[in-house]
């Protein structure tokens, strides 16, 4: 089931890129179109992949996460400030992860300890992150005159990265590489380790987990924190690999697209990654449509991922099943 979903989405990604190459007839050479599409797709997919993996940990353990956006936004700033103050990109990455985890701690505290509606709690974090980053940006950063520590360098894989067309795939920055590695790692952790088994049990039937001695709230807290850390890494992408500065609302809704990718990917690691690539390809097509002379208004291409997510959620094709206990606080008797 999840393998079929992965293959289906990947097929759509390839089809979309091929479509662009075929339709983009009155522009540059097909090679250039394809290479540009691939590069844009991957660039767009990295934070979405990380955001979706962040949501995966949260939701698999039974905590809804609509706060990926806020976590990434706060982390984008945290990473920038960390890197700029110490002039170390490595510290920047750590600062991003830590900032994400602080937001995650707030989410866990509100929704697990206080049993605040998890969607309300997510909303709180989104508003708080937008406000705080905006405030710090204009109030503190603009006055402090921080100097950016620059961007993380690309790590090319020898030979492969020199290939025509597919070259860009093998020429990426560290966070982008990490995202791809994490896809595999998260899959392994979630489906092949004790931690993953317990996490999924807590998200599916917390009472059953409780009766075999698993501490439900502890598992949820830890998973929210792990997820938030990954979201933090996703946030760091924006200011350490995307552009060497922090701008207000720099994440620009990518956290919500990550949530869509998570759902579209059926709450699986590879599925989410494929969905992130699909959204990336749709975005690449949207950006390049005009340049390539594609006769569809770019906005209709841009709508496509969201429409697909609704369709999947409504069960019209390939219904995605959420963890059964997601959204419900656990009460011990």
């Amino acid at each position: 089931m999840s393998r079929n979903r992965f293959l289906f989405i990947m097929g759509t990604v390839i089809a979309l890129i091929l479509l662009t190459v075929v339709l983009g007839r009155n522009s540059d050479s097909p090679q250039i179109v394809a290479a540009s599409m691939l590069a844009t797709t991957l660039r767009f997919a990295t934070p979405i992949t990380l955001g979706a993996l962040a949501g995966l940990f949260c939701e698999r353990s039974g905590v809804v996460n609509i706060a990926i956006e806020g976590m990434m936004l706060a982390a984008a700033m945290g990473a920038f400030v960390g890197a700029a103050v110490t002039q170390s990109l490595g510290v920047g990455i750590l600062a991003g992860i830590l900032t994400g985890m602080i937001m995650g701690l707030l989410h866990a505290w509100l929704s697990i300890t206080f049993k605040v509606d998890q969607i309300v709690s997510g909303t709180v974090i989104n508003i708080l992150a937008a406000g705080l980053t905006g405030f710090i940006d204009t109030q503190v950063l603009s006055k402090a005159g921080l100097r950016s520590a620059g961007l993380l360098p690309q790590i090319p894989i020898p030979i492969l990265s020199d290939l025509p067309v597919v070259g860009p795939i093998f020429r990426q920055q560290p966070i982008a590489w990490t995202a791809i590695i994490l896809v595999v790692v998260v899959h392994y952790v979630m489906f092949h380790t004790r931690w993953g088994l317990r996490t999924r049990a807590v998200g599916e039937n917390p009472r059953a987990a409780d009766t075999v001695g698993i501490r439900v709230k502890y598992m949820r807290y830890m998973n929210v924190l792990i997820g938030a850390g990954i979201a933090g890494l996703g946030g760091a992408y924006f200011t350490l690999e995307g552009v060497p500065s922090f701008e207000t609302q720099i994440t620009n809704g990518r956290g919500f697209i990550a949530l869509a990718a998570l759902i579209f990917g059926g709450w699986t690691s590879f599925g989410s990654w494929a969905a992130a690539l699909l959204f990336g390809a749709a975005n690449a097509l949207q950006i390049n449509a005009q340049q390539f002379g594609i006769p569809i208004p770019s906005q209709f291409v841009g709508m496509f991922p969201y429409l697909l997510t609704i369709v999947v959620l409504a069960g019209v094709i390939g219904r995605a099943y959420p963890p059964a206990a997601v959204g419900t606080p656990y009460e011990t008797e």
Partner: peptide, 27 residues
């Protein structure tokens, strides 16, 4: 309608519809 008919949660569908509306508006 999606909620009543298929059970699709309104939080996700409304977020998605926000983006679709933004795209329509952009168009």
């Amino acid at each position: 309608f999606l909620k009543a008919r298929t059970g699709a949660h309104e939080v996700i569908t409304t977020i998605m519809l926000n983006y679709i509306a933004a795209q329509i508006s952009g168009y």
